[in-house]
Amino acid sequence: MSSKGIPDDMLVCRCEEITADEIRQAIREGARDVTGVKRRVRAGMGLCQGRICEKFVQQILCQELHMGLVQTGRSTARPPVRPVPFGELARGCGNDL
């Protein structure tokens, strides 16, 4: 199930609708890790925050740059780790009620 040669037209990040070709283009433009790809083409910036596609992006980086999985890095961990609607944040902290 290796995805060596994920076809260019394959959808990799389904949240942001980014194809393998767009990720390869980002690498050609200088992306060297998951964060670099994310900043250039938004792969991993959608609702799932890369939970599904990060592994595919890492695989493409490994193939294109002949690097190890660990060197591809991971996107920065930031709270909230699950989506929280703005309205809920505006409602304030439940502790105070």
């Binding site: 809920e88 944040l89 409602r91 304030g92 902290c93 439940g94 502790n95």
Partner: peptide, 9 residues
């Protein structure tokens, strides 16, 4: 109750 969500610390 009522399905409203709130944030707690």
């Amino acid at each position: 109750d009522g399905g409203v969500k709130k944030l707690y610390t």
